[in-house]
Design a protein around this nucleic acid. Structure first.
Length: 998
RNA sequence: GCGGCGGUGGCGGAACGGUAGACGCGGGGCCCUCAAAAGGCCCUGUCCGCAAGGGCGUGUGGGUUCGACUCCCACCCGCCGCACCA
């Protein structure tokens, strides 16, 4: 229920010395107060101001006790009934809070008396005496005063903290009861490098709006924050400047903390974490070992992507389409190295299938599906008789097996040199392989490039017909996909066709377009051209160099020809399944599914990352560090310069250790983990952030997980989101979690651009959030960024638009403050005449309309239209201010503040408090009165042949016949009908009437 | 090439198949002022018209419908992701 009474409802006048409370509530702040601030107050503030990660935290229990001492014991009954006493108490509390908050503020003392009290807060620091006109002070919206004041309240009261025990928060004001549903609202944790940018502001503005909305819908909301603190930028900075990554990271983290506070984001700071703290990465290491023990983390030598600039290997996902390092842009090389991998491919099928059950944007799901790249087909074995080696190949087109005319292997294929050995082509093959391996992805990975390759001088047997196919090595075949070898069917594959043309190889068509195949013998269907399809047997073989009149390669579906009597004439899709079954029976192949997804390479030869907790012992091999010895701490080193091996190798004392199994001399693993490992489980840790005995307590996780709403940029659509999903599934399989998907719903916010292009230092178009907040306040900045357009789309930053939103907030504050002053005592339930009529009714209706509109818009992330609706409401308040009763105005303005609170919390907390004496965040979300959403008459649109010709007033309960008559009678309708025959009359009650005339 | 998203005033953007352009910016006019800032009021898709009113308008061309920004088909343009994936 909406706490604010609809002014139409009359209640008994509240007695009570509210004015006393008011006087305290309004007591202006002053610099002198700081000196006299109660010790308790100061202590509380200090506890929060630093906010350094890893500081001593006071547990929830201590916190609750603290609060009770303040006489704020629970009052569950408050939600239902609202005795006047509670109003008084609330206001008294407000006064005390303001006193406490005052300590941080600098206000000239002479602003502290009498009629100027509102003004005193409103004037900028250092301004002279307020301008008094007609006994009423001019009011001015001053976010620089308002925002810190409310931030202080939220910080000192730890307003946004939630306990893991559903009963644990029951004592606090506005807190939902123990039976309240929980809600986990999470924005992707920031990477602390430098200062927050405007994209952070957008992301956290979206998340905060959702968090506030959920809270006020009565849910217990978990809304935590942390820092993804390991990573290359901090390390590269260290290489340049010598500053320890820990120091530059700490500086950046405190800058993020400061700004998050100044933005007024409602964060539960008691759960703050940073992934570089031993108390966190201890559990990252534990998870790694769990995966290791389960065989999901393993070492293997492989051709891996190597960044020559960062001197480290990269995950496939960290190499962009041009073959460049995602971080530094250097061209990536391929190296054969032994590295750590996580077996994400084991989860490919589930990662794909489970996408169907989560509420994510379609384009993100699509990206993940593409990335997993599932292909169904068959694995078929080709045998090289000379060397007696079987070569399985994967194909999605086993229906074209009879059209295979050659066989190609990737240059990286381990057998290539062996196959060529002793053949006349040996030297040529060697040269080709060397060249291919040193080429960049960019040079090699271009489909437009002419096909190159070298014959291996060997053949393999096509299992379906025993034919000998010449073998080639060519760089268009990739080692990473399938088996690194393919059967080539030039007639039905564009790449094979191009290769066949370049090497003048046979092309044999085995699938013909349906219509051509069905055409009578010798008929001029022409689709397959002369000589195609072949009559019988293999008459369809031609040289690729022959004229093909553009018919080949033919990659569409059709019917089989020239294959095998059992299959010829059948549609290829049907034949495909039969051929696979036949291969299976004959032991020559079997159905198979292939994925583009590769295992996740997680080791990095860098310093600033989580150490891999493995020890190498000559006797025992790879030995995991025992759980009790975790964390394996990152050692101190002096030289971060990349040398192609991990900088940790230089820390000799650290590397040398005893084998946990045999006690003998052993060496530590010196690689660190990819930072994406750190961020693949942080959302679990928030739930139980101070647990020192385990990464989490599964019972606690049950309370919060999975995340109800996850928010972040699309740039993480593949990497982070895929890895986090993988971790959940793997940890669930190991019995540590009882859910499969970490993020029930996902929202991806668009970029913030300036003048249409991405903000960047080189373009010199960076808008700094700190500067904006300094100039116009965080409410304006946050509301603007949500107002400028749909949050999932890119938004262009325009300073003029910011001014517009600032004007809006100014008007809201000013009108509210004036109204509050005019009305005198703030009342939680503004009283007004029993009924409304005229302007009062209109404004009350508009208010309920706004409640309905904003509620609906919030549910669908349409923040821009939600804010627009409040603007409309305020415009009406402003327009009707002289015509409506004071209580109506108070009701509408308070509601406006209530609805806008999720987007502009400080100013709304302020106006709501001025008008009602209440704290808006403790109020339930308003509910629209259905009966106020429709009026008893409306404007009926009158159309003739679909064109609007007139508008008339219609009564809401008029029946369709009456509406038709009303329309026909409308003057301008008459003019357009003009004696013509009305052939049809469409009546849409509540909307319009359309007359069809001839 | 494949997949996804989008194309509406001078600009950002609104519109369950039912009054296209909410809200904001920008622009114009006026009020307040000695003046300005701030604020307030009015106008603002386009063309014709003194007006009433009318014509034209949501990338293009078709279609469905009493009625289409919205649904269907074909195309053009832009952005994003993937791409020699067998």
């Amino acid at each position: 229920m909406h706490r604010l009474a609809d002014p139409r409802r009359r209640g008994p006048a509240r007695g009570a010395p509210r004015h006393l409370a008011l006087a305290r509530a309004r007591r202006p702040t002053g610099a002198r107060r700081r000196a006299h601030a109660p010790a308790g107050g100061v202590r509380r503030q200090d506890r929060h101001r630093g906010g350094r990660v890893g500081r001593d935290r006071h547990g929830p229990r201590a916190l609750r006790a603290d609060r009770r001492c303040g006489g704020r014991a629970g009052d569950p009954a408050r939600r239902g009934v609202r005795p006047a006493a509670s109003v008084r108490r609330g206001l008294a509390r407000e006064g005390a809070r303001r006193d406490r908050a005052a300590a941080a503020l600098e206000q000239p003392l002479h602003h502290r008396r009498g009629a100027a009290r509102l003004t005193s807060r409103a004037l900028p620091r250092g301004a002279g005496l307020p301008i008094i006109c007609g006994g009423m002070a001019e009011k001015r919206y001053d976010p620089r005063e308002i925002e810190p004041r409310w931030q202080q309240v939220w910080a000192s009261e730890r307003t946004w903290e939630v306990s893991n025990d559903p009963a644990g928060d029951a004592g606090r004001d506005g807190a939902p009861g123990p039976s309240a549903p929980s809600s986990y609202v999470l924005e992707m944790l920031p990477y602390p490098s430098g200062e927050p940018h405007i994209g952070h502001l957008k992301c956290y503005s979206v998340g905060d709006a959702i968090a506030h909305f959920h809270r006020r819908l009565g849910r217990r909301v978990l809304h935590p924050m942390g820092y993804d603190a390991f990573g290359l930028p901090a390390e590269n900075h260290a290489i340049r400047t010598g500053e320890h990554p820990r120091d530059s990271t700490a500086a950046s983290i405190s800058s993020f903390q400061r700004q998050f506070h100044s933005w007024g984001i409602s964060i539960d700071w008691s759960r703050e974490l940073a992934t570089h703290e031993p108390s966190y990465y201890r559990w990252t290491q534990w998870i790694f070992l769990e995966l290791f023990r389960a065989g999901l983390a393993y070492r293997k030598e492989a051709a891996v992507k190597w960044c020559p600039h960062d001197q480290t290997v990269l995950a496939n996902e960290q190499v962009d389409a041009d073959g460049r390092c995602e971080r530094c842009g250097a061209l990536v090389e391929v190296r054969q190295l032994e590295q750590w991998f996580l077996r994400i491919t084991d989860y490919a099928e589930r990662l794909l299938g489970d996408l169907d059950g989560i509420d994510w944007p379609e384009h993100v799901k699509t990206m993940q599906r593409n990335w997993i790249g599932r292909s169904e087909g068959a694995e078929v074995t080709f045998r090289c008789e000379e060397l007696s080696i079987d070569y399985p190949v994967f194909t999605t087109r086993p229906d074209t097996l009879f059209g295979a005319t050659f066989f190609v292997m990737a240059p990286e294929h381990p057998d290539v040199l062996r196959l060529a050995e002793g053949t006349p082509n040996e030297m040529e093959v060697r040269a080709y392989v060397n060249k291919a391996l040193t080429e960049t992805n960019e040079e090699r990975g271009n489909a437009e490039k002419p096909k190159t390759g070298v014959p291996l001088g060997r053949t393999v047997t096509n299992p379906v017909n025993g034919e000998q196919l010449p073998m080639y090595v060519a760089d268009y075949v990739l080692m990473e996909y399938g088996t690194g070898a393919i059967m080539a069917v030039p007639a039905h594959d564009e790449r094979d066709f191009a290769f066949a043309q370049a090497f003048d190889l046979p092309v044999r068509q085995v699938i013909a377009p349906r219509e051509a195949a069905e055409a009578p013998e010798g008929g001029g269907a022409g689709a397959a051209g002369d000589g195609h399809p072949p009559e019988d047997g293999d008459g369809g073989t031609a040289r690729a160099g022959d004229a093909q009149d553009g018919q080949l390669p033919f990659t569409a579906d059709g019917v089989l020809v020239g294959s095998h009597p059992d299959f010829d004439g059948k549609p290829n899709r049907a034949a495909l399944a039969e051929i696979v079954a036949w291969l299976d029976r004959e032991g020559k192949g079997h159905a198979s599914v292939n994925y583009r997804l590769r295992d996740w390479l997680v080791s990095r030869q860098r310093y600033w990352g989580c150490p891999i907790p493995i020890v190498y012992c000559d006797r025992c091999g790879m030995v995991p560090v025992p759980d009790l010895e975790l964390p394996v701490r990152l050692p101190e080193i002096d030289d971060y310069t990349p040398k192609g091996r991990s900088p940790l190798a230089a820390a000799e004392d650290w590397v040398a250790t005893a084998c946990p199994e045999c006690g003998g001399a052993a060496r530590r693993e010196t690689d660190t983990m990819d930072t994406f490992v750190d961020s693949s489980w942080y959302f679990l840790r928030y739930c139980d952030a101070s647990n020192e005995a385990a990464a989490w307590d599964p019972a606690v996780l049950r309370e919060w997980m999975p995340v109800d709403q996850y928010i972040g940029g699309v740039e993480h659509a593949i990497l982070h989101l895929m890895y986090a999903r993988f971790f959940c599934k793997a940890l669930a399989d190991l019995g540590h979690l009882d859910f499969q998907e970490p993020f029930r719903a996902l929202f991806t916010q668009g970029m913030v651009t300036k003048d249409g292009s991405k903000m960047s230092k080189s373009r010199d178009n960076v808008v700094s959030p700190a500067a904006i907040v300094e100039r116009v306040g965080s409410d304006t900045a946050r509301a603007y960024i949500l107002f400028v357009g749909p949050p999932d789309q890119d938004a262009d930053w325009a300073d003029e638009g910011v001014e517009g939103v600032h004007r809006f907030l100014s008007r809201l504050w000013r009108l509210s403050a004036e109204t509050a002053e005019r009305a005198g005592t703030p009342v939680a339930e503004p009283l007004a005449p029993e009924h409304g009529e005229g302007a009062d009714l209109a404004l009350v209706r508009k208010t309920h309309w706004a409640i309905d509109k904003v509620s609906g818009d919030l549910r669908r992330f349409a923040f821009n239209t939600a804010i627009a609706a409040v603007m409309e409401l305020l415009n009406d308040c402003s327009r009707l201010r002289e015509e409506v009763q004071l209580e109506t105005l108070r009701f509408s303005l308070a509601t406006a503040g209530s609805l806008l609170f999720p987007f502009a919390p400080h100013v709304c907390a302020d106006t709501y408090s001025l008008l009602t004496g209440e704290r808006v965040w403790e109020q339930p979300w308003p509910e629209a009165d259905e009966s106020m959403l429709e009026s008893d008459s409306y404007e009926l649109v009158c159309q003739v042949n679909g064109k609007v010709r007139d508008r008339v007033r219609a009564s809401a309960d008029a029946d369709p016949g009456a509406l038709g008559a009303l329309c026909r009678a409308a003057p301008n309708v008459k003019a357009h009908v003009d004696g013509r025959e009305i052939v049809k009359e469409i009546v849409v009650p509540g909307k319009l009437v359309n007359l069809v005339v001839r």
